[in-house]
Write a protein that binds this DNA or RNA. Structure first.
Lengths: 332, 332
DNA sequence: TGACTGAAGTTGACCGTTAAAGCTGGTTGG
DNA sequence: CCAACCAGCTTTAACGGTCAACTTCAGTCA
C-alpha cells in the first residue's frame, strides 16, 4: 500500500534516490542506500510494477498462443517456455485458442493494447491457415514448418517422416497406411511429403486410399483406424502423424483382434510421455520440445529488446526411437 | 502509437469525451460519438491498457499456480480456468512452480507488486505443506482438500476412495494394495483415510506393507508396483491414487507376466483422457475438472471484485467409472 | 424575460514511477 | 583564484488514461 513517496519521506531522501537505490544501487551512496533499505523494510514497501510498466511502456509479459493446453505435447512446450520467460523476468499469458480465429484475435489485441510485449505462436502458419498478426508485433513460431514467414523454430518434419517410412520399408512393409492430421495443417503437409518421397525412392506407387485424415486427437485416430480394418487388402503398417492418434488407432486395432506388431506395425510422432508406457510401447519420432521452447522464447525476447537476430529460422534435430510397436512384415 | 489526446484533436472534442465515448457511450451525444469513432478508425487508435490498469490500480490478470503444467490432469483444469477468465476479461498468468516453494514465492510476489489481482492455487495446502500466501491476497484453491483454510473447491476424496475400495471388496478382493502419492500430500491423506474406513467397515485389518508410496507420476507407479510383484502373498487388487501411477503400474505388472484384470485388478483416480484408451481401460474416479475450474475462477473473481461469497467451500460430486481393469477375484 | 434544469462537453488533478535536468559543495588543474 | 569537473543528491516533468468538478448551452416554463 505504501508508495515510493512515503519511503522517501521515511528515509529522509528524495523519491528519485529511492528509485535509484532499488534499480541501480551502485549509483547511490552506501549511507543513503542503508537509509532506503531501512525505510523499505519498515514500511514493507512493494514497488508498484503496474506503474513501472506503464512508465517504461512495457508489460514484461508474453502471450503464448496454444491450440489446446490439455494436449500433452503442448504441455512440454509450455513448461519450457514458461521456465525461460520466468528466468528472464517475463510473465507468460496463457492463450488457449481452442483452434478458433476469434480467440486468437482477442489475444493478439492484448499485444496491440500493450498488455503483452510479444507472441509465441504454437500453431504453425501457412498460406491457407494464416495468422493475422501484423508485422510490427514481435512474434516467434515455436513449432513452425518449412515455409513459415516470420522467425521460427521447427524440426525437419519431412525428413523425420522419411526416416520413419524408410524404417518401415526396411522391415519389409510395402503397404503403409497413414493417419494424418487435418489436410491444411502445415505439419500434415510436410510429413505427408516425406512419406511420399520415401515411397518414391523405394519405387512404390502412392495410393490415396491409404491416407486417413484425423485431427491429431486420440479419438480421431481411433476412428481413422477403422478405415484400414475394413479394407480388403489391409496395410501391414500404419504411420500416424502423432502419438495420440497412434494410441487411438492401436485401441481400434486391438479391439478388432489385430495384434500389434505381429499383424500390423504402428508408429507415432512426438514422443509424448505416454508413448513409452502404452502397450505396446510406441516407435516414434522424438521432438526436442524443451529445447524448442527455450530457443523460441530466447528469440522472442531478443526481438522485443530490439537486439538483432543472427538467424530467424532454426531447425532442430529429431530423434528416431524404436520401441515395440513395429516388427518385420509377416510372411504369408 | 496514437494516444487519446491525438484522437481528441482529430475528432475535435476533448480527451474526456473520447474516454467516455469508449467506455460509456450512452452518456455521449450521437454526433460526438460518430466523430470519435471516425477519428479512432482513422488513427487506428488502440487504448493503452497498461495506462488504464495503472489508473484503476488493477491488472485484470490472475496467477494460476500449478505444480506441473505437463501433467495432463492439470491441463484440463487450466483449460477451464483460462476459458472462464477470458470470458470475464481477465488474463491468466501461468505459474508453473515445479513443486518448489521459491517459484511459488516469485509468483506470489507478482500479486504483491500489483502485476496480478489474485491467485488460483492448484496445489492443495495442509499444515505440513503450507502456502505462504498472506491473508489479504485473494486466493482460491481449485483442487483443495477437506481441511483447506481459505476458499476452496474440492471433491470428497475420502468418500470417492471408499467407493472404489468398497467396489473392489464387492468383487471379493481382500488383499488390496495401494500406490499412494507423497505421504504429506493432502489428497494422499484423504484418500488413504477412505481406504482405511472401507477396510474397517469390512472387518479387514489395515496392513502397512500394502502401501507403496509414489509421487503421482507414471514412473513412480511403475516403480512402486515392483513392491507388490515381489511379495510372497501378492495383493489381488491395487488401488492407485491417480491414473498416471495406475498406467505405470500396469506396465510393470504386464512385464512380470501378471494379467490384468484376471490375475490382478488395478484402479486409478482422476479419469484423464488416457484412462479410457490404455490397455485394459482403467476403472477410475472421474473428477469434474472443468466445472471445478470454472467455479474456482468465478469465486476468485468475485473476491477480487469485492463481492461477498455465499459459501467459501464447495464440494463437487465425482463419478465412479467401471472399465476393464477390474474383475472378480480369481478363485484358486 | 429571466430563472431554472439537465445534458454535453471541458478542465485539470491524479495514479507511482523514472529520465532528464538542475543544484550543491568539494576537489583539481591551469 | 577561478573554471571545470565530479559525485550524489533533488526537482520537475512526463507517461496515458480516468474521474470529479466545473462550464456551457439549449430548452422549459412561470
Amino acid at each position: 500500500m505504501s508508495s515510493i513517496r512515503e519511503v522517501a519521506r521515511a528515509a529522509g531522501v528524495s523519491v528519485a534516490t529511492v528509485s535509484r537505490a532499488l534499480s541501480m544501487p551502485e549509483k547511490v551512496a552506501s549511507k543513503s542506500l542503508a537509509k532506503v533499505h531501512a525505510a523499505v523494510a519498515k514500511l514493507d514497501y512493494k514497488p508498484n510494477m503496474l506503474a513501472r510498466n506503464f512508465r517504461s511502456a512495457r508489460s514484461y509479459a508474453v502471450v503464448v498462443l496454444v491450440p489446446d493446453i490439455a494436449n500433452p505435447f503442448y504441455g512440454l512446450f509450455i513448461r519450457a517456455l514458461e521456465d525461460r520467460a520466468q528466468q528472464k523476468g517475463y510473465a507468460v499469458l496463457l492463450g488457449d485458442t481452442r483452434g478458433t480465429a476469434e480467440r486468437e484475435q482477442e489475444y493478439i489485441r492484448r499485444v496491440e493494447t500493450r498488455l503483452a510485449d510479444g507472441i509465441i505462436q504454437l500453431r504453425p502458419s501457412s498460406e491457407k491457415t494464416k495468422n493475422n498478426i501484423s508485422a510490427d508485433i514481435p512474434c516467434v513460431y515455436a513449432c513452425g514448418c518449412e515455409y513459415n514467414t516470420g522467425p521460427a523454430i521447427h524440426i525437419d518434419n519431412r525428413g523425420a517422416a522419411r526416416t520413419m517410412v524408410d524404417y518401415l520399408l526396411s522391415l519389409g512393409h510395402r503397404r503403409i497406411g497413414v493417419i494424418s492430421g487435418l489436410k491444411d495443417n502445415p505439419h500434415t503437409i510436410d510429413r505427408l511429403e516425406g512419406y511420399k518421397e520415401s515411397l518414391r525412392n523405394a519405387g512404390i506407387e502412392f495410393s490415396k486410399e491409404l491416407i486417413a485424415e484425423g485431427d491429431f486427437t486420440m479419438w480421431s485416430g481411433l476412428n481413422a483406424a477403422f478405415q484400414f480394418c475394413n479394407m480388403k487388402q489391409r496395410p501391414t503398417a500404419i504411420f500416424c502423424m502423432n502419438d495420440e492418434m497412434a494410441i487411438g488407432a492401436m485401441q481400434t486395432l486391438k479391439a478388432q483382434g489385430i495384434r500389434i506388431p505381429e499383424d500390423m506395425s504402428v508408429t507415432g510422432f512426438d514422443d509424448i510421455a505416454y508413448a513409452k508406457y502404452c502397450d505396446p510401447s510406441l516407435t516414434t519420432i522424438s521432438q526436442p520440445a524443451e529445447e524448442m521452447g527455450k530457443m523460441a522464447m530466447d528469440m522472442l525476447l531478443r526481438i522485443i529488446e530490439g537486439e538483432s537476430l543472427s538467424q530467424t529460422d532454426c531447425v532442430l534435430p529429431t530423434e528416431f526411437i524404436i520401441r515395440k510397436s513395429t516388427a518385420p512384415v509377416k510372411l504369408i
